[in-house]
Simulated scan of single mutants.
Amino acid sequence: MDELPSIQQLENFILYGKYRNFTAAAKAANITQSAFSFQMKKMEELVGVQLITRSNRGSDLTEAGEQFLQQVTAVMQELEQSLYDLRSRHSETVTVTVGTMLSLGDVLMNRHLAYFQKYHREIVLSVYNLEARQLLEELSQDRVDIISTFYLPQMDITGYEKVLVCKDELVYYAPRLDISGTRVTAKEAASQPLAQYSPQYLMNLYLEQYFAGQTSTALQVQAWFSTPYAIMQYCQQNRIGAVLPRRFLQAMGVVHGWYELDPQIQVPCYLLYKRQNPKYAQIQIFIEYIRTTYHLDPDSLT
Rank of each mutant, 00 (worst) to 15 (best):
V184H: 04
F248P: 07
P175T: 04
S226M: 11
Y234C: 03
N238A: 07
M232T: 13
D178S: 12
Y206M: 02
H256V: 13
A174W: 05
G253Q: 01
L261Y: 00
A218K: 15
R176E: 15
L261A: 08
Y201I: 02
L244C: 10
A230M: 11
L207A: 07
Q192D: 07
L194Y: 09
Q250P: 08
L194H: 06
Q209A: 06
T182V: 08
M232A: 08
A242S: 15
I179G: 02
R239V: 10
F225C: 07
A251S: 15
G213P: 00
L177S: 12
N204M: 07
T217D: 08
Q192T: 14
R246I: 12
D178E: 14
E188R: 06
S180L: 04
P175W: 06
A189V: 08
S226R: 01
L194C: 01
L194S: 01
L177N: 13
A218I: 14
Y197H: 13
Q236A: 12
P175R: 02
A174S: 12
Q214G: 03
Y210S: 03
A189H: 03
M252C: 14
P245T: 09
Y210V: 00
M203C: 06
V243K: 12
Y206D: 07
Q200H: 15
G257N: 04
S191K: 02
V254H: 01
I231G: 08
G213R: 04
T215N: 02
P199R: 03
G181C: 06
R176M: 15
I240Q: 06
G213W: 04
V255E: 14
N204R: 04
Y197E: 05
P245H: 01
Q196C: 00
Y201M: 14
F211M: 01
Y259I: 09
Q266R: 14
L205I: 10
A242D: 13
Q236C: 04
Q266G: 01
V267S: 02
S216W: 02
L202E: 11
Q237M: 14
Y259A: 09
Y229A: 02
Q264Y: 05
S180H: 08
S198L: 10
M252E: 11
I265M: 14
L261Q: 12
R239T: 10
Q209F: 05
S198Y: 11
L244W: 05
V254A: 10
S180E: 10
A174V: 01
A230N: 11
L205Q: 13
F211A: 03
T215L: 02
V243F: 05
P175A: 10
A242W: 08
R183N: 05
Q237R: 15
P263K: 03
Q266V: 13
P193V: 11
Q200E: 07
E260N: 15
N204K: 08
Y197M: 08
L194K: 09
Q266H: 13
Y173D: 11
S191P: 04
F211W: 06
H256C: 04
E188Q: 12
R247T: 13
A190K: 13
A189N: 05
L177K: 04
Y259N: 08
Q209S: 07
L261H: 08
Y229C: 00
Q233I: 01
I265W: 09
L194I: 14
Y201S: 15
V255A: 10
S191T: 00
N238D: 00
A186G: 12
Y206E: 07
L219D: 00
I179E: 02
Q220N: 15
R176T: 14
H256W: 13
A251N: 15
L219N: 05
Q196W: 14
